[in-house]
Write a protein that binds this DNA or RNA. Structure first.
Lengths: 255, 255
DNA sequence: CGAACAGTTGACACCGCTCAACGAACGTGG
DNA sequence: CCACGTTCGTTGAGCGGTGTCAACTGTTCG
């Protein structure tokens, strides 16, 4: 099966309306595949690039360092995302993209992508919408960083990632792979590792989520969404996943 | 003179490459004009809109309130900006847009804007790029909110607004109109009014900037940019303004 | 003139940071 | 398969940047 089917095509179907011809045109894109190790910088600030990078498998984050050497993570990406679609219209990048874990990537030349946009307005619209959703998520992070407490922010991030992974079927139950260290969570949340550690303990004590290394278990989605003030509309999904884990909960009750 | 010349056309010329035909096509857009009072909500969350709003004159901010009633300002807009270009591809908005002061606005129907994008790829590219720059600014705000101190954040915001106003010639010297209250600054910076007040005093004591009601005076741009860690690349301007106020400084030395 | 808003100042509390040490899990090579 | 280094996670103590609360001043405008 074409790797684009369960990544880019599936992703764009989540957020836009494509025709069969659009999908075929997407499948016809020529890809350059590459696998990179955890921690690899995929694209770095000020670099000039002529292709965009589709995340096929793994987990990616975008970040920037301050002059004092502190790191702020700006975004996370799940399989199916084009992690630097913005580079299509920028000469130089203003931040870095790195592989959080070992990743399978597929590169698409800008020229070819732009030609596709010109010949298929639907696809241009879908990709533009993708970059706008990116921006919508940024806005929500700004609100979280500026006006929400540590525990609210943490809950919000976990809600967002859970929903995005479920939307793409990368996660399918209340118990799934979330390959982030507390350090990475801290750098995304504008907190320190110590605080994140304590915050996660609080969330566990309250029976909301449990995290163990690379696994996350949602124990009480409604309550988690409640303290996060999470509503999925800002992800602009056409059919947001239900997030009803009651069946799982029974199945896992014995565990 | 067509109001689009000194707003949208000028703005897009700052960030993209247009032909004369592109400019003519932009000038031919049909506009609905409107003036709103300070504090007016221009578009609100969850609203469905079928036009985008060009800021002709005034000052606009975008914001969102948390469940606890705290406000976070997400973006500021200067004349020439389309303040809700993202709405072109979204059914529902995920945040609010409000007039910071009395504003002259011009509305453009989405249908007409999209037709223009289809017929003129250059304009589509320029507008897409506009939304990407919007996102780039969000990213920088995320870094500021997550990993920079109150004084650094404040300096950074002042640098950004100064540069954007100068790029559009809305401001032309070191002394210009910046119609923001300390309350609005606080809500943008994720601080409280009290802290902003003290931070501004510190900046003044150090001889960097002075703010008086609606006026801002840049006293030492290099030093201000230094503590903010400000570099203009993320604004993605084709020709960033020089920001050399040495002549002004002499002229204002007596004041 | 008076209400409403914007700005200023002081005292105090607290959330989250810093520093520091230790424990647990993992991976790699001998 | 163990030994060991490295990364990740955990815990405690103390500090500091911002927030909170509250009072007061200054400005604008009807």
């Amino acid at each position: 099966m074409n790797p684009l089917d369960r990544t880019l095509v599936q992703r764009l179907d989540l957020v836009a309306t494509l025709t069969d011809e659009d999908r075929d045109a997407l499948r016809a894109l020529s890809l350059t595949h590459k696998t990179v190790a955890a921690g690899t910088d995929i694209v770095v600030e000020n670099q000039e690039v002529h292709h965009s990078c589709l995340l096929v498998d793994g987990f990616v984050h975008r970040y920037r360092d301050t002059r004092e050497g502190k790191r702020q993570i700006i975004a996370f990406h799940v399989p199916g995302d084009i992690v630097d679609l913005h580079s299509l219209k920028f000469e130089k990048l203003d931040h870095n993209v790195a592989a959080t874990i070992r990743c399978d990537l597929a590169f698409i030349r800008h020229e070819e992508l732009w030609d596709l946009c010109m010949s298929r307005p639907n696809i241009a619209a879908a990709l533009w919408r993708e970059t706008l959703i990116d921006g919508s998520i940024f806005r929500r992070w700004i609100v979280a960083l500026g006006r929400m407490s540590g525990i609210q922010r943490t809950a919000h991030l976990l809600c967002e990632l859970t929903m995005r992974l479920h939307a793409m079927n990368t996660a399918q139950t209340q118990h799934f792979h979330l390959p982030l260290t507390q350090n990475e969570l801290a750098d995304a949340l504008g907190l320190t590792v110590v605080t994140v550690n304590r915050t996660l303990q609080t969330l566990k004590q309250r029976g909301l989520v449990e995290r163990n290394r690379t696994m996350l278990t949602i124990r009480n989605w409604p309550a988690l969404a409640q303290i996060a003030g999470f509503e999925a509309t800002y992800l602009h999904l056409r059919n947001p996943p239900a997030m009803d884990f009651s069946e799982d909960r029974q199945a896992n009750a014995s565990a």
